[in-house]
């Protein structure tokens, strides 16, 4: 019998949104896993730290993401253990190397007609500069200041493009991403208001605990009642 390949995802996570700001990279993703249209799990992180100053986030099939994570964690460990540098110069995997490695993996998988059903975001900080890149399920890579996977590509990207500046402060970057996540929560049926932020800077690499976006005003937002432009921060557009 012919091999059966992955033709559709089963348990999925939705968008990952990220941007470069002044001094680092910030990512955001919600913590919902969907089984088709059913909300299956509400508190599952979709962003992980692979090595020092390297973050990986994913939308799409969650089991594929778990497999990718276990593979690249092993790779990151091997980078240290197989290193012939002295014990003082610990070698680790860099964000750019991870991004390129995942390109090869994703391209090979799709060329065998059995892709990992994910769009991946890699963020890092190396050589005194922030790094942000994406790899899609076909193995296409892009290095950008703004990234959004899944529905975020349609719903968050216009907002990001409008509001983003290279000199954005951390606070502004966070507010912008929370705005995006709120829009996604209102308009993407597979998104939730429970999100995580992840940050890489020169000095730190942290992933926040999941927290709930305030959506108490919900559908009462003026822009939800009547389509108007330029109303900030209420989930409308």
């Amino acid at each position: 019998m012919a091999n059966k390949h992955t033709t559709r995802p089963i348990t999925t996570g939705t968008s990952v949104v990220g941007l470069v700001y002044d001094g680092g990279v910030l990512l955001a993703a919600d913590t919902l896993l969907s089984y088709g249209s059913m909300a299956k799990s509400f508190n599952t992180p979709r962003m992980v730290s692979i090595a020092d100053r390297v973050l990986l986030g994913a939308s799409g099939e969650y089991s594929d993401f778990q497999e990718i994570v276990s593979r690249v964690e092993a790779l990151a460990l091997a980078e240290t253990t197989q290193s012939m540098e002295s014990v003082y110069d610990e070698r680790t995997l860099s964000a750019k190397s991870l991004w390129n490695y995942l390109r090869a993996v994703m391209y090979q998988k799709r060329s065998k007609m059995n892709p990992f059903w994910n769009d991946l975001v890699v963020a890092g900080f190396e050589n005194d500069a922030p790094f942000l890149g994406v790899i899609d399920k076909l193995g296409t890579t892009l290095q950008e200041n703004l990234v959004a996977t899944g529905f975020g590509g349609y719903l968050a990207m216009p907002l990001l493009r409008e509001k983003w500046r290279p000199d954005l402060s951390e606070g502004e970057a966070r507010a912008l991403l929370e705005d995006c996540m709120k829009v996604l929560f209102y308009r993407d049926c597979r998104a939730s208001a429970r999100i995580q932020l992840a940050k890489v800077t020169k000095d730190t690499c942290i992933i926040s605990e999941p927290y709930e976006l305030d959506h108490s005003n919900g559908w009462n937002a003026p822009s939800m009642q009547r389509a108007v432009g330029d109303l900030d921060g209420d989930g409308g557009w």
């Binding site: 240290t80 253990t81 290193s83 012939m84 540098e85 002295s86 014990v87 610990e90």
Partner: peptide, 8 residues
């Protein structure tokens, strides 16, 4: 590392 005796 060419003469490395302690490894992680």
């Amino acid at each position: 590392g060419s003469y490395k005796r302690i490894h992680t």
